[in-house]
């Protein structure tokens, strides 16, 4: 198994190495200023020295994005369930949900600060807004695409609405809910960093703004790379959960 993973991974791995190498050579060859584009080696050096002071920022952002993600997931699943079980409500409010998604979060952010101040609340609202949509839409899609034959079976057997939902529609929607969760997971980190730009004591976003305003570009890169790593870690974690939840599907066809 390990060799097969290695076989799969060596090409992209080599491509990344090549890219970093080119970057390093180019910055040296054309003697690009560090504040404009730092070489990878500069970024690594910077990371080494800055990591101890960076840890509290990291922790703050992770906490923020995880809590935002959890709230967003809860709200998203809740909204999807309500809209699914009450078709009238869906007809009335679904357009609102679509419109709400076409509003750029960054534009909304200053407004939220005016209304709720500089505490955690507006930040959580931003992350929740970013996460809730992909989850709600994927869950709703999963609910409505439930296999008609299974629905017919359940109805013939006398299942009521609650039984139909808990025993059939919800488990049936789990694969699509997970595709929503994967998108929301990566959104949540991005939204957390953006929300920290608005004003916070700690966080990768704060660290980034401070570094950028003093032209410490290497630090900005450190922040970007760490944000990427967090995002990837979220994605990986959700992938693991998915594997666990839909292990019944692993070997076979998708019924």
């Amino acid at each position: 198994m390990n060799t097969s993973v290695l076989k799969k991974i060596w090409r992209p791995f080599l491509a990344i190495l090549l890219f970093i190498g080119l970057w390093e050579v180019a910055t040296r060859l054309f003697s690009i200023e560090e504040w404009l584009l730092p070489a990878p080696s500069d970024i690594v050096m910077e990371a080494r020295s800055v990591i101890p002071t960076f840890l509290p920022h990291l922790q703050s952002t992770v906490t923020l994005s995880v809590s935002g993600f959890l709230i967003g997931t809860t709200v998203g699943l809740g909204v999807a369930t309500i809209l699914h079980l009450m078709p009238r409500v869906r007809e009335t409010f679904f357009p609102f949900i679509i419109i709400s998604q076409n509003m750029p979060i960054i534009v909304l952010a200053p407004l939220l600060v005016i209304w709720f101040g500089f505490n955690a609340l507006p930040k959580l609202i931003i992350i929740t807004l970013a996460c809730f949509f992909p989850i709600a839409v994927s869950a709703l899609g999963g609910f409505t695409q439930t296999n008609r034959e299974l629905v017919h079976y359940m109805k013939m057997m006398g299942a009521n609405k609650a039984q139909l939902f808990w025993k059939l529609e919800l488990p049936h929607a789990i694969p699509s809910i997970f595709s929503g969760l994967k998108i929301a997971g990566t959104y949540s980190v991005m939204a957390a960093v953006v929300s920290e730009w608005l004003g916070a004591q700690k966080g990768i976003g704060v660290f980034m703004t401070l570094a950028a305003s003093s032209y410490r570009t290497s630090r900005v890169f450190v922040a970007i790379i760490v944000a990427m790593i967090i995002s990837l870690a979220f994605y990986g974690l959700i992938l693991l959960l998915e594997k666990f939840f839909i292990r019944w599907q692993q070997k076979g066809e998708n019924n």
Partner: peptide
């Protein structure tokens, strides 16, 4: 809810094992 039913397609729940599947009718 007064009759038990076997459809044309087996219509088993793919996320349930066989024993869990045959218990659906009783669960309801």
């Amino acid at each position: 809810g007064f009759i038990s039913y076997m459809p044309q397609q087996a219509s088993l729940f793919p996320w349930r094992t066989i024993i869990e599947n045959v218990l659906v009718g009783q669960e309801l």
